[in-house]
């Protein structure tokens, strides 16, 4: 029970970083922490008591395996997270070239 709670605390830390920090790189790291936390939460959900890894070998009796579906989901979510992070970092590099600063309160040419 405490592990789920700590996972959600990690998610909140990531969310705080993503919305309150001023440096672009810290915002990107915050989003990365959020993605980690969600993937971890997904895998933790698949745990069954006294379970072992879900590989079906030919000569072993199947007693109790953990749920393999969240593992497949987490794999896909990690690859999606990779694509998002890649794009954010590339954008951050280009923004630094144009604006000369990493401070998001100064990157404000689009006015209301």
């Amino acid at each position: 029970m405490i592990t789920y709670f700590l996972c959600l605390v990690l998610f909140s830390i990531g969310l705080f970083c993503a919305v309150r920090k001023r440096n672009i790189i810290k915002i990107i790291i915050g989003i990365g922490i959020m993605e980690y936390a969600v993937n971890l939460f997904f895998i933790l959900i698949g745990y069954r008591a006294q379970g072992r890894s879900p590989i079906l070998a030919r000569d072993q009796a199947i007693t109790n395996i953990v749920d393999p579906l969240p593992q497949a989901v987490a794999l896909t979510a990690i690859v999606i997270g990779l694509a998002v992070m890649l794009m954010l970092v590339a954008l951050a590099i280009r923004i630094y070239e144009r604006y000369g600063t990493f401070d998001i309160t100064k990157i404000n040419r689009l006015k209301e």
């Binding site: 890649l86 794009m87 590339a90 590099i93």
Partner: peptide, 16 residues
């Protein structure tokens, strides 16, 4: 390609 794009940054104007 990701590695090239993020490493060759100051010289290229290709998007990743």
């Amino acid at each position: 390609v990701i590695f090239i794009a993020l490493v060759l940054v100051p010289k290229s104007d290709k998007r990743s």
